[in-house]
Structure formats: C-alpha cells, structure tokens
Nucleic acid binder design. Structure first.
Lengths: 221, 221
DNA sequence: TTTTACATTTTTGAATGCAAAATTTGCGAT
DNA sequence: ATCGCAAATTTTGCATTCAAAAATGTAAAA
C-alpha cells in the first residue's frame, strides 16, 4: 500500500468518527487492520498531526484531535474566507459547462429539500461548495479548503435543522447560483460569507462541544 | 531531538535555499548532519511533503519542491485572501497595545526605507504583516498563513525594487497602519489586497521561474 | 563507435529489534 | 479497605536490518 493511501485510510477512519475525538489511537491494532508495520503507520500519523487531525503527545502516543468551541469558530472563520476567495476567483474563471453542472447539482439539491431528504441535501450542498472551489482553478486554495472542511466535518456536529433555517439556506443557495451565473464575484463572495456565517452560528448556538471522554456531545434543541 | 525540531530544521534548510528547488534531498547526508537515523528523517520529509515544501516520488526519493509560475500565482492569490481576512479580523480584535507595537514597527520600517536599507526594510515589512495576522487571534489562519508564505519565500525571487515601487509600497503601508488605527476592517482588507496584488505583479513580471537544474533563474530588469 | 542486454551497486521503503519512558500491577503499611 | 510506592509490563521512539526497486557500470554485438 502506498504512503498516501495509508494517510487517506486513517483520515477516513478519523472522519468517520470510528476513533472518537480525544481517544487514543491504538497503534498495534491499526497496524494489524491495515496490514502494515509501525513505521509507515507512524509516518502517516505525523502527517495527519501536521494537518490537525491528530494530536501527538511526546512519549504518550497519539490521539484523535479534539476540537474546542474556539477551534470550531476559528475553522469556520477561515473556511468563510477561503470560500469567499474561491467564489471571486470562480466567477473570473468558471466555464459555461461548469456553471451548467453546478446548476444541475443545485436543482437536484432543491429537489432533495422538497423531498425533505436531509442526508441527500447535505451531500448535494457539499458537492456544490466543492465545485465552486474547484472552479476557482487554484489547487493551493483547494488543498487548504479540503483540509479545513475535513477538520470541521470531523466534529460530526448535528444542528437542529428547523424549517426556517433550511428554507433560508436554500434561498441563499439560489442567490449563490444566480451570482455564479452572472459571474458576479463580489456578490458571490458576499453571499457565501453570509451563508457560512449562518451555518457557523447554527453550529455554535447548537452548543458544539467535544467532551473529555472522547465521545461528542450533541445538544439538539 | 524532538520530531517537531527535526521538521523545523529541515524546513530551515529548504527555506535557506541550501537545498535548491528540484534538487534531490540526500537522505544519508542529512542523517549524519542532524545526527539522527533515517526513520525520523523520513517522517519529517513526509510532513514537509504534506506542507508542499518537499516532493515525494515513489521509489525515487524526495526532492525539494519546485515552484512553477502557476504555483507562484496560486500561492499569492491565497496569501492575499488570508491576509485580507486577517486584516478584517484584526480590526475587530486588536488591542491598543498591539496597534502601538505595529505603529512602532512601521516607523522603524519607514526609517529603513529612508536609509535605503532594503534588507532591514523587508524584515520589518514581514514583521508587520505577521503582526496583523497574529492580531487576528485565529491560530488556524496563522498556521495556514505561515505555510503559504514559507512556500512563497522559499522561491527566493528577487524583484527589481525601483524607487517608484518602493515609494508606493511604503505609501500603502501608511494606509495599512491608518486603517488599523481606525479599526476599519473593510478598508484594511482592501488595502492589503491591493498591496499583495502589487507584490505579486512585481514578482511575476520580474519573470519568476525555477529551472530544471535546481537553481533558480532570477531575471532582474 | 554506438547500442543494448545483463550484472552490480546503490537507494528506497518497510519490518524488526532494542533502549528509554510511561503506565499498570502488586504488595505492604496505615 | 485504601493509599503509597516499587516492580513488572506495555508502549513509545529510534536504530538497524532486510527485501525490492532503480540507477549505474560493463561487456558484447551491431
């Protein structure tokens, strides 16, 4: 197995929450599971530590990183900035074909909203945001975005999705698509910021927290 | 020596240009120099690869990453976005003491400009930008900024600093300080963008390029 | 003289082994 | 029974070793 694959597989394990935040990462066990020895595993853990997904404690092993409220706020803030930038750049560079693809994804997402299928809605939502970042044509930006969103997603927060919030989010997405189609960079940037700010407020208001024990607390209204 | 120190020392070697872009990284030699064995060295190299400073080629060892023109453009674009965000956040959170410190650093930098001391000017310039990012109070943002600027600085480009350009840069810095003192986030963000855009134009117009051989070409007007 | 096939050397990537550090266990004292 | 302390065990971090892949050198053939 290639080095990068080892990193990806452990990343997936962390993102799936299989090893909860704050929990020790069982070296020996992971070695057996991935059928590799400790050397490549430890190399991967150090890479993931640099990414912020793993926390290394000298002579005390590695743990799945635990996010505080402040961490979450910081990550959202940066994510907002990155998406705003991506939006501006995307408007300068996006092709008609890419816009059409996003419009199609948008329509599908709206249908999931009408169907009340939250899971599929989230999936479509994420695909749209990723498509905008991709359309910015900046791999450096895309890389940072992936890393930051991975850390956010890692938290597996659940926010109470009220009909009002959901309707607002869909409305914002209409505006996002509209700005993209008009290639209005400043406008798109502005809408994306507001959209992310609302999402952040949701998450933090919902009372995001990761407890000492390693499992997460989800305060659902 | 601690893992993180190994990473830092190799990073420094790369940033100093001691191993030029595109050049192979001599494992055995570095091991002797840092007085460590291959295992911790290779762990560090993989971390630096994730950071974008090192390029890993399967079964062919590692090389100091080489930046293309496009990479440079992408990095500057992201840097611009990060600094703009930092400026906005800094205006919300910066303390009077921090503003005073930046004002002092600014005055010192202007004096270096009057003295025609380019090296010291650059040093002061960098300190101010870092202070603004730090004042944003967002460690995630600070981390990404450090990583991106390291990669840019890695290139050791030299731009022809004409008196006009230099004067403009100083003028922009006056505006930066002014916006900070007025805590005008939008204004500061705007000025920082322009400032970085000018710098990027300088660098790219100067004809940044990194040749195959490993050393860099500096086209100085 | 140039090119190609093959053997040798070097280098890479990963497993194992070993010493140091931390954690757990066991036992005696209170 | 509980607390404290020392021995035993486990785990970590790194050096070494080993197999496989790539690079290099050599010699024979065109």
């Amino acid at each position: 197995m290639l080095h990068e694959d080892v990193v990806s597989r452990i990343r997936a394990i962390l993102l799936d929450g299989e090893i909860p935040p704050g929990a020790r990462i069982p070296e020996r066990e992971l070695c057996e599971r991935l059928e590799i020895s400790r050397t490549p595993l430890r190399e991967a853990l150090k890479v993931l530590a640099a990414e912020g997904l793993v926390q290394l404690l000298p002579h005390r092993g590695s743990r799945a990183a635990k996010l505080t409220d402040k961490d979450m706020r910081d990550l959202f803030e940066v994510c907002q900035g990155l998406e705003a930038l991506a939006g501006e750049l995307a408007c300068e560079r996006i092709t008609d074909a890419e816009i059409d693809a996003i419009a199609a994804a948008h329509a599908a997402m709206v249908q999931h909203y009408r169907d009340g299928d939250l899971i599929q809605y989230y999936r479509g939502n994420r695909a749209i945001h990723e498509a905008i970042v991709s359309a910015a044509g900046n791999p450096v930006l895309a890389g940072l975005y992936t890393s930051v969103t991975a850390r956010i997603r890692r938290a597996r927060y659940v926010t109470p999705m009220t009909p009002q919030r959901w309707a607002l989010a869909v409305k914002e997405h209409d505006a996002i698509l509209n700005a993209l189609q008009r290639r209005d960079g400043a406008g798109l940037s502005h809408i994306l910021r507001a959209h992310l700010r609302h999402k952040r407020e949701e998450v933090l208001q919902a009372g995001f927290a990761e407890t000492e024990g390693g499992d997460l607390t989800l305060k659902i209204a």
